[in-house]
């Protein structure tokens, strides 16, 4: 199998003076409207997002703060399901060229059928998965084989609390990139990022096999710049979902939002 779309992105993106500045933006599938998923993705691509992380809504998202929780509840109320999402993504590759990552929690995926999920995700052009409550033991013993079989990347999270030994292990299991959580928090936290430099410098010095994207607490140009200074780029989620709240014009809102970041 050739290199994944995600790997190619990191390989082909030139490093400026401050290194790579890959921008991954999170959005919740089916938010703000059930059928706005593709419009949101298109707007993100058109306005400078290098990767799109598409959240699959879940009733009990443990790692998420109130803003993303709420977007998930709205999406569920709109009728979003994995089945519907795959139907929406069926023709996405006609318009969307950037890598697509599905992010979600294990339970809906298990009910859909893990292998069936991987197969259909790959078939509609999804490139990678982030499942924060799939631990590495179960990944190695049960689920990782399906992910690999269908050529999907799998991205593990590391945090400032993760030991060096474990960072190396999770890096060795990840493909595409490694997701560095900036501070010990749920998404959208306002914890300050003063210590994040030390942590990111440590990761940089470890010479990991994957590029590193930083997420959690990235909300504006300043935090994006801080995150990028010692990594390959960053992930923005909560701030973008906030921007989408109540909007009637996804394209304009996205354009205005990303203008403030890049």
């Amino acid at each position: 199998m050739g290199e994944s779309r995600i790997t190619k992105l990191f390989q082909s993106t030139p490093s400026g003076a401050g290194g790579q500045r890959i921008l991954n933006v999170y959005c919740t599938a089916g938010y703000p409207q059930l059928d706005s998923t593709l419009d949101v993705m298109k707007a993100l691509q058109d306005n400078g997002a290098d990767l799109i992380e598409l959240g699959m809504p879940y009733s009990d998202p443990l790692a998420d703060g109130p803003v993303i929780q709420n977007s998930g509840l709205v999406a569920l109320a709109n009728g979003m399901t994995i089945e519907t999402l795959f139907a929406q993504l069926k023709d996405a590759r006609k318009e969307i060229n950037v890598p697509i990552i599905l992010m979600g929690y294990m339970n809906p995926v298990l009910q859909y059928g893990f292998e069936r999920f991987c197969k259909e995700a790959a078939a509609v052009g999804v490139d990678g998965l982030i499942l924060p409550d799939l631990p590495e033991y179960e990944f190695e013993t049960e689920y990782g084989a399906f992910i690999k079989q269908y050529g999907l990347d799998f991205i593990f999270l590391v945090t400032p609390e993760t030991s060096d030994e474990r960072i190396k292990k999770l890096d060795s299991l990840s493909t595409g990139f490694l997701y560095a959580v900036s501070s010990s928090s749920t998404t959208g936290s306002d914890k300050n990022m003063t210590d994040v430099n030390t942590y990111l410098q440590k990761l940089q010095a470890m010479q990991l096999s994957n590029p590193v994207l930083v997420g959690f607490g990235i909300k504006d140009k300043q935090t994006f710049d801080t995150a990028c200074s010692h990594s390959n780029g960053a992930i923005i989620g909560t701030a973008y979902i906030k921007a989408l709240e109540g909007t009637n014009d996804v394209a304009a809102t996205t354009k205005n939002f990303l203008k403030t970041i890049i």
Binding site: L134, P135, F156, T159, E161, T186
Partner: peptide, 11 residues
């Protein structure tokens, strides 16, 4: 059983 937890709880 098992421990299906996000990395933030791992330590």
């Amino acid at each position: 059983g098992g421990a299906y937890i996000p990395e933030m709880l791992h330590r």
